[in-house]
Design a protein around this nucleic acid. Structure first.
Length: 419
DNA sequence: CTGAATGAAAT
DNA sequence: ATTTCATTCAG
């Protein structure tokens, strides 16, 4: 399968990325292909210089050319192989700047927009280029789906100040020195001769998962960094290339389950708005800090117009779901002040790993799990926490921008008399 | 509804 | 300095 990426400004420049395998390579049974996501490319999200100049018009047209239509290109996360993270130096924490102009008002299929964005040259999705054929790296099938924090502590082999890209000892899960983690995923293209496909990417790298839609290892980070609402990606998920038939008619309710904790109102827009608002964040910081974003949402876009064409984009059910979430009275959806505080770093961490810990300690009460999580959190180094503090900061910023009153404490009777 | 954790912001 | 509230779910 070949992706052709056309840039509008350079119509003749066509970048071809060969994805998956060459079918002719029948002899390469188990050899792993290592995809290296180069995130230092000028157009990549991690590269700062491009941020402010990204305009909508830069969005490329993406055309997926399937050389073999009968073979649907679907990649499945191997069940025996899990993600790994390893440190990587010099990261400029940065957000990809997906311009608000990305949203064209009359565009019917906003999913297509999302696909375009995620497959644009700015997207990490398209930053991958082939790196190394016969990689010496052996992917360990032993690492369960548990995060390193949840696993028994490694035998702390001195985390040698090794090269930027550790080649052989990823298994060691060397503590994150400083800088960010990189996610390593292994895909199973499904055919025997193709072997496995290994890819490195950022934790917030979005993938399009069958029946789930956009997914990433770190959804909340993805929406902050790239403006793409995501589900959490799991082992066994089937990743689809944008444009795949299954990618079009999927039930997106799963996507929005991720956001059920957010307070949606009828005035809220679809993910498109989230998309654009996130991207707009930076530029808006130039102008006044007023809640212009809300005006944007109120005046222009509602959920309904976000998904005009597809009945499956159950915006109503989405709303109902969000309302139902708070239907028990306390904060009604009709209340003007309905936003929730953004999670702090620990909360993000806890949310992410609570499930794993509960599985780890069956029968343990949630409170006990909280204790463990807190314990774990305290033992984590700042570098390890950084990912969460960073995201927490970003979430808080965005929240404050969109809803400055969100942090206002509830009106209480000031002082508690007893206690 | 309570509690158990941490942290950020508001009092 | 203290209080609230973000998440999660068994009890």
């Amino acid at each position: 399968m070949v992706w052709e990426v056309k840039r509008n400004q350079m119509p003749n420049a066509v970048q071809k990325l060969l994805l998956v395998m060459d079918k002719r390579a029948s002899g390469m049974n188990d050899s792993l292909e290592l995809l290296q996501c180069n995130e230092n490319l000028p157009s990549s999200p991690g590269y700062n210089s491009c941020d402010e100049h990204m305009e909508l018009d830069d969005l490329p047209e993406l055309q997926a050319v399937q050389s073999d239509p009968t073979q649907s290109a679907m990649y499945q996360l191997s069940s025996d192989v899990s993600h790994q993270e390893y440190p990587r130096p010099s990261w400029n924490q940065n957000t990809s700047d997906i311009s608000e102009n990305t949203y064209r008002e009359n565009e019917v299929d906003w999913l297509t927009e999302l696909a375009n964005i995620a497959t644009s040259p700015q997207s990490p999705l398209m930053q991958c280029s082939f790196y190394n054929r016969s990689s010496p790296v052996h992917i360990i099938a032993t690492s369960k789906s548990l995060h390193s924090y949840a696993r028994p502590p490694p035998v702390s082999s001195s985390s040698e100040s090794g090269p930027a890209f550790p080649h052989h000892h990823w298994k060691e899960e060397t503590p994150v020195r400083h800088e960010r983690s990189v996610l390593k995923l292994t895909f199973d293209p499904g055919t025997v001769e193709d072997g496995l496909l290994t890819v490195e990417c950022k934790l917030d790298h979005p993938f399009y998962v069958k029946n789930k839609g956009w997914s990433s290892f770190y959804p909340s980070l993805t929406v902050v960094q790239h403006g793409i609402p995501c589900c959490e990606i799991h082992i066994g998920d089937v990743c689809l290339p944008p444009g795949h038939p299954d990618a079009i008619n999927f039930d997106d309710s799963g996507v929005f389950d991720t956001f059920k904790s957010y307070d949606f109102t009828p005035m809220d827009s679809s993910a498109v708005y989230v998309l654009s608002s996130m991207a707009r964040q930076r530029r808006a910081s130039l102008s006044c800090g007023g809640p212009g974003g809300q005006d944007f949402a109120r005046s222009g876009f509602s959920k309904n117009c976000g998904s005009p064409g597809s009945s499956q984009l159950s915006s109503n059910s989405l709303y109902a779901k969000a309302v139902k979430n708070h239907s028990s009275g306390t904060v009604s959806a009709t209340s003007p002040n309905k936003c929730k505080r953004p999670m702090n770093a620990f909360m993000l961490f806890a949310k992410k790993y609570r499930v794993e810990y509960t599985q780890m300690y069956p029968g343990k009460d949630n409170r006990a799990i909280s204790v463990i999580l807190g314990d774990r959190w305290k033992k984590m180094k700042n570098e390890e926490r950084r990912m969460y503090t960073l995201e927490a900061k970003a979430l808080a910023e965005e929240q404050k921008r969109l809803n400055p009153d969100c942090w206002k404490r509830k009106r209480t009777n000031s002082v508690r008399f007893h206690k």
